[in-house]
């Protein structure tokens, strides 16, 4: 595994690669009442690329992710625009095709890891289950591969963790296990929706490092969704800032951070500059500031 993850811009892929996920002017609303909640989101994700989506709760960022995963709430639908996953328009997919796609092409991790694991089953078999269903592995092979995956997400003593129950593990470890399960079927896109929000800061940094590793080692494309601009700035080359269902700012991270156009983006940056660690550590990162 490479440790060259500090500057994501260094590994930007060539622009000619086909996108693995592309959203074109996606609008989401209730088709019966005509009420629109998300007013047009466009983004394009090529292998190894990391796009960040920043916004408050209610800004439509989670709905956008759910639309890409085909799991919108019952009364909502994509009303216009298109979503393509690895070249396939999702509006043409039946439930069987969706099942084939989820996990093996597009996958996701969410905020509260404990609620996505069955508390009465050991965590290892829950990861192995994905392998058996998605990759058709035998029980023994699945176990072997699951332990490898647990190791790949930097869990110490993966054999021990394999046979532990969710309540015996910390939030950070559970999130690693979910990332392992999400990556078990070698997806091309991983959506991390507030995946680090509930974790301690030091653990959050570990998870972000882990995601960067996965990106570097497997060419995984990432959508990192957070309410915190700083978290997104750590990892992403491109940032979308959403507010009230609309994209108010979209561009390369450095541009959004240093030449924000929208008041809301400026507010997000001001908050960090006034109240964050920022004003103390600014002096340490002179080279990066010059880079802008």
């Amino acid at each position: 595994m490479t440790l060259l993850s500090e500057k994501p811009a260094a590994v930007r892929p060539a622009p000619t690669v086909d996108p693995v996920l592309s959203l074109r002017d996606v609008r989401i609303g209730n088709p019966h009442t005509g009420a629109e909640i998300v007013h047009g989101v466009s983004l394009e994700l090529t292998p190894g690329k990391v796009v960040g989506v920043v916004g408050e709760s209610g800004s439509g960022k989670t709905l956008t992710c759910r639309a890409a995963l085909g799991i919108l709430p019952a009364n909502l639908a994509v009303t216009s625009g298109s979503i393509e996953i690895a070249g396939a328009d999702i509006s043409t997919l039946g439930s069987r095709e969706w099942t084939a796609l989820r996990g093996s092409t597009i996958s996701a991790v969410f905020q509260d890891p404990a609620s996505y694991l069955n508390p009465s089953i050991q965590v290892g078999p829950q990861v192995a289950e994905v392998l058996r269903v998605k990759k058709g592995l035998k029980r023994r092979e699945a176990r072997h591969r699951a332990i490898e995956l647990l190791q790949a997400v930097h869990l110490r003593q993966p054999e021990l963790v394999y046979s532990q129950y969710p309540h015996e593990l910390s939030g950070g470890m559970l999130q690693r296990i979910l990332i392992a399960a999400a990556c078990a079927a070698d997806p091309q896109v991983l959506i991390a929706d507030e995946a680090t929000t509930a974790l301690d800061v030091t653990v959050q940094a570990e998870i972000l490092d882990l995601l960067a590793d996965l990106r570097d080692s497997t060419g995984l494309a990432l959508v990192v969704v957070s309410h915190d601009l700083a978290v997104v700035a750590q990892l992403c080359e491109e940032v979308l800032v959403m507010r009230d269902g609309a994209v108010v700012e979209h561009g390369p991270t450095s541009q959004v951070l240093y030449r924000p156009e929208h008041d809301y983006t400026r507010l997000l940056i001001d908050e960090h500059e006034q109240y964050g660690l920022h004003r103390f550590v600014k002096g340490k990162n002179v080279p990066e500031e010059q880079a802008s």
Binding site: E6, K7, V201, T202, Q204, A205, E206, L208, D228, L229, A230, V231, A233, Q234, L257, I269, H272, E273, G276, L277, H278, V281, K282, K284, N285, E288, E289
Partner: peptide
């Protein structure tokens, strides 16, 4: 300190 996310990447 080194884990806290800041706009200019981690310190």
């Amino acid at each position: 300190v080194s884990s806290a996310p800041t706009l200019r990447a981690a310190s």
